[in-house]
Design a protein around this nucleic acid. Structure first.
Lengths: 128, 128
DNA sequence: CGGTATCCGACGAGATACTG
DNA sequence: CAGTATCTCGTCGGATACCG
């Protein structure tokens, strides 16, 4: 499906390979990034994650966590106690994403008003 | 829909507000990030964008471009010639995202093999 | 408490065809 | 060349209910 670009110059911005593209897409995902953001430096349990993220459903939480676990971005530790206690923390690969994710958060807050106004202008211009 | 978190400490990682969350989600999007990545320093035309990104459909390209334009991340310039010539370039807000997006690309390439192996381990462990 | 399964609506996204 | 519209289908994502 992905077309080959033989004469591409850029090295580390090249996402033409199927696998790279797929991984890029899986992490360029709303819930995944929000979870990484919340897990930043802490170890959190399932329910804690749900309340921290806010707005994520039970299903999406476990689903996204499993994807992140599969890709080796989060580490899942099950404590054999009752009631069960499962803890999640970022692996090294996950930690390496923190800077990027944080940049996205900062950017969002920096340009929030800017974007809000851009939308107003755009919408009122089209309303004619 | 978004629950209020009165006692949240972190300032610039707070995404509990509905608008912030919505903007975050709109930019934490596969096609949007790929487009920003490709537009990095160049001004590109519609068709050029399509070939550069590779794999994006006509529809998704125009749709994503309109979202980015609405949010004031890309600038759309129409040259009144025939055949029509429309050029896209990043605005200042869009440029501000370059670092972040580039970080994501670099990360993808750095951990590509790492992730591929993590997936193999995960899948074979479950196949039991 | 942590997790999966099921049902079901809403939207993402490709293919195709049609205007300026 | 750039863009929109329609049609279709797969996946996202919420609600609910049920196991460990």
């Amino acid at each position: 499906m992905v077309t080959e670009h033989p004469g591409r110059e850029s090295a580390d911005t090249d996402l033409t390979r199927a696998l790279a593209r797929e991984i890029y897409a899986s992490v360029a995902n709303k819930w995944a990034l929000l979870l990484i953001n919340v897990l930043a430096d802490r170890t959190l349990r399932f329910t804690e994650l749900q309340t921290q993220v806010g707005g994520i459903s039970h299903k999406m939480l476990s689903q996204t966590l499993r994807h992140l676990e599969r890709d080796g971005l989060v580490d899942r530790t099950v404590h054999p106690v009752v009631p069960p206690r499962v803890e999640y923390r970022l692996t090294e690969a996950g930690q390496a994403l923190r800077t990027t994710v944080n940049g996205l958060c900062t950017w969002t807050h920096t340009y929030l008003d800017h974007i809000e106004e851009a939308r107003r202008r755009f919408d009122s211009a089209r309303a004619v």
